[in-house]
């Protein structure tokens, strides 16, 4: 479980998050919906302890990580897998090297064990035959699947997606979204999905929080979104466009 309690964050003089509280339960898929630049990626980085809030607390599985040192954070972060917006694959490494990178870095496993785990992820992501290619030679959807495979390699129980469908064609988007919902069914995995596309929310999320001008203006099960009164939510429901 991940909890944000009254979190506020400023970049310089600009207040990005104002008193944001959020709870993400295990084994559920939670979407965070909001226009670009509102601070959605920032929320994911807070959850991983990559940045510190100005006030408030971030709690992961009952541990307050707000003031934790970088070194003690490493083990907490491995409970969560992160899929970055631009995938953040290492572009000088092959696909299988990318998948095995953090196993080699952080766990003292025998090489055979690493190869086995990498092969497992290759198969899961449907990338057989692409093991020795560089990320740049793959399509957008494939690269996204490599990034998901990399995030799953430590067997996390929560996975964080930053705009999982951004920049993908509609078919690849659907594929990625069904992959996400199958993850929960087969592996009991919880997920946080940050997005500015409202279709994604209805497709996979159990519950949704809407972030608007630094505040959470809605936080409930997805179906209730249709009943929300807030003018911003009404406008995105009617034209489905979040660019403001």
């Amino acid at each position: 479980m991940i909890e944000l309690r009254n979190v506020s964050l400023k970049y310089g003089e600009r207040e990005i998050l104002k008193n944001v509280s959020l709870t993400i339960k295990d084994n559920t898929i939670k979407a965070i919906l909001g226009p670009s630049g509102v601070g959605k990626s920032t929320i994911l980085k807070l959850m991983l302890g990559l940045i510190k809030p100005n006030s408030g607390q971030v709690i992961v599985d009952g541990t307050d990580i707000t003031c934790m040192k970088e070194r003690s954070l490493y083990s907490i972060r491995r409970k969560m897998g992160m899929v970055f917006q631009g995938n953040a694959l290492f572009d000088s490494l092959t696909i299988s090297q990318n998948l095995g990178f953090f196993l080699r870095e952080n766990l003292k496993l025998p090489e055979a064990e690493i190869s086995r785990k990498v092969a497992e992820q290759i198969q899961f992501a449907g990338l057989e035959g692409y093991e020795d290619q560089l990320p740049e030679s793959l399509s957008g959807g494939m690269r996204r699947r490599v990034a998901i495979g990399r995030a799953l390699i430590f067997k996390p129980h929560m996975i964080l997606f930053d705009e999982p469908t951004a920049g993908l064609d509609p078919v690849s988007s659907k594929k990625i979204l069904s992959l996400i919902s199958s993850l929960r069914q087969n592996n009991n995995l919880g997920a946080v999905i940050v997005t500015h596309i409202i279709d994604d929310v209805f497709y996979v999320a159990d519950s949704v929080a809407v972030l608007y001008q630094g505040e959470i203006i809605f936080d409930d099960v997805t179906e209730k979104l249709h009943e929300a009164e807030h003018p911003f939510i009404r406008s995105i429901l009617s034209d489905k466009i979040l660019e403001l």
Partner: peptide
């Protein structure tokens, strides 16, 4: 960020 996120 990815390096840090995965513990390196």
């Amino acid at each position: 960020d990815a390096l840090r996120a995965f513990g390196t």
